[in-house]
Write a protein that binds this DNA or RNA. Structure first.
Lengths: 223, 223
DNA sequence: ACCTGAACACCGTTCAAGT
DNA sequence: ACCTGAACACCGTTCAAGT
């Protein structure tokens, strides 16, 4: 026959878990966490909201799946470098950048327990740490510490992104916090008032990496 | 007059921001984040849901206020010890324990940007770090790293608590994750499968402190 | 100034009914 | 087996009306 339509090739608009998760990610990226509703998702997929429940148990599972997807993509094909410490650094930056591009992943990571996405990160970090020559117990603690740090920053970044969608207002916000800190009573808040000028011109990515380096230095330290 | 009722002393059931926040904390502690609704809050305060809006702008502000309260209490009157490093440790543990007692604070901290509660923590940590002799710039980075780490752990703990309300099921959950890790393909997940046995008997609080010590060691390291 | 509570515009989720 | 879409049981928030 001339027009062969293979059975395995369904219509493009056929519903599937993968297509649902993909659409969810698009909505989350475009309009943020609050925009992801089953109604919006159903509309985008040109179906009824109930249809989604055939492929996905509920919203929390959908969010977890979307997060797993993004994290897997960020971690995928992580090129191995000569220096294992450098590997941890680039790995951490990959996750940072992924969360920067998809802020909702940050909130999700911060509120999910030992779910797939967290496991992926922990495994990736742990693998790179193996060659440090740390004893097993300390190694688990070290990998956990790094993962928790990364997830913590992720949550804060997501919160920032939620506050001023799409960068404009970000510097305005930082300046506002900076003046708030400057105006604080130096007696009661010596640290914040001293550090206020640094806030305006600091780079989130650099500060994130500085924290990673701090923890790495700690891991290197004997005992 | 015999029965003097001072004007400033209102009826016990008079609404006020403080009383609203207090009631909110009680609900959050007793039944978790999902139980805090304006209707439930209004019922507990024996008033209409709209009345709450006279004292509080919206739910997010209410959650922030509740979080600030708990954090302030946890940080309040932090006794100063001889060793500044030990001070950081006990400070971190205070926050950890507060979040353990009020898991919802963990989720809240992880999703709020540079709000009051985060500022309080950053200030408290930063103050203790001052005496380490770190240069200003590195000091800001160090305090941020510690705060982000603490907040990251907080979020994870809150997630765990949400999963198995009130401890029962916690060990069951850990064991379940442990077997999941054990069953993983050791080729693809060498770290998790190696570390699985440690999961069941590890202590969250100890591991948290190990992470704090790791960062402290990193801060002590020159350059 | 402060409180009441019905009403509005949403949610996630379910489910009988369809194909 | 999979989809439809109305219906249910909720939400946060607003607001006219009261005191």
């Amino acid at each position: 026959m001339a027009t062969t339509t293979r059975r395995t090739e369904r219509r493009t608009d056929a519903l599937s878990r993968a297509r649902i998760v993909e659409a969810a990610i698009e909505i989350l990226d475009a309009d943020g966490e609050s925009a992801l509703t089953f109604r919006a998702l159903a509309a985008r997929l040109a179906t009824g909201s109930g249809a989604i429940y055939w492929h996905v148990a509920n919203k929390s599972e959908l969010l977890a799946a979307a997060t797993d997807d993004v994290v897997a993509r960020a971690l995928g094909g992580a090129a191995s470098e000569a220096d294992p410490e450098q590997e941890v650094r680039t790995l951490a930056l990959r996750i940072f950048d992924a969360i920067d591009a998809h802020p909702w992943v940050g909130s999700q990571l911060a509120r999910e327990p030992l779910q797939l996405a967290m496991q992926q990160i922990l495994e990736a970090i742990g693998q790179r740490l193996e060659s440090f020559g740390t004893p097993d117990r300390a190694l688990f603690d070290a990998a956990s510490a790094l993962t928790n740090y990364i997830v913590g920053v992720a949550g804060q970044n997501a919160a920032n992104a939620r506050l001023h969608v799409h960068d404009e207002g970000r510097t305005a916000f930082l300046e506002q916090v900076a003046t708030r800190w400057t105006d604080l009573d130096a007696e009661q808040h010596p640290f914040l008032s001293k550090v206020a000028p640094q806030l305006a011109d600091h780079d989130d990515r650099e500060q994130f990496l500085a924290g990673v380096d701090l923890i790495l230095a700690g891991i290197r330290t004997p005992h």
